[in-house]
């Protein structure tokens, strides 16, 4: 198997484990639950088939649900995020000759701010769908919005940390 595929599988498993073992038990200020597993979409190159985003999103969400006691919530939200990810990447990816070629979204390829905008949009979408399905009502929309914003911010922070770690690792290898 190609090494980059293996690396992605390791990341998939690692992100899932971190989510279900550690992060799912964190509820900062009673609202914010970090969900950085959407970082997996950042590991897929831009020439990846769109159905792969959807399928892997569903798998990640489904596996997370198995251990978090919310069957269907994570799967549905992550599946929706997987569908939107390529479109969001097109929206926030820098334009230019160099980006006409396939690339993997990262700080190295996109710089911090475009990368973070992509990540923020991913986490916001994922968190909103997740908490909307979990609450299944718009009666407490303010609370839903607050939870979404805090969780998205925390998730973005974790993803930024992962990305920084990954960048440093690559630098050391080089």
């Amino acid at each position: 198997m190609r090494p980059e595929i293996l690396t992605r599988i390791y990341w998939f498993i690692g992100l899932w484990l971190v989510q279900v073992v550690v992060l799912d038990h964190i509820a900062l200020l009673g609202y914010a639950i970090p969900m950085p597993y959407v970082y997996f979409f950042c590991l897929l190159p831009t020439n990846t088939q769109r159905w792969v985003y959807v399928a892997t999103g569903f798998c990640m969400g489904f596996l997370t649900d198995l251990f978090t006691g919310t069957p269907g919530v994570g799967a549905a939200s992550c599946c929706a995020t997987g569908l939107a990810a390529p479109y969001l990447l097109n929206l926030f990816a820098p334009s230019g000759y160099a980006f006409d070629e396939p690339f993997t979204p990262s700080v190295r390829t996109m710089e911090w701010w475009p990368f973070l905008r992509f990540v923020i949009s991913l986490t916001l979408l994922n968190c909103f769908v997740y908490f909307l399905l979990e609450a299944f009502t718009l009666m407490y929309f303010g609370r839903l919005l607050l939870t979404t914003l805090l969780s998205a911010a925390l998730s973005t922070g974790f993803i930024a940390a992962f990305e920084a770690l990954r960048k440093n690792t690559r630098h050391k290898r080089l």
């Binding site: 159905w51 799967a75 599946c79 399905l133």
Partner: peptide
């Protein structure tokens, strides 16, 4: 195909949810 897959998986997720 990604839309069709999305619809199928989303329905499956909602089935689990309900």
């Amino acid at each position: 195909v990604h839309f069709i897959l999305f619809a199928v998986l989303e329905l499956a997720s909602l089935a689990l949810l309900f």
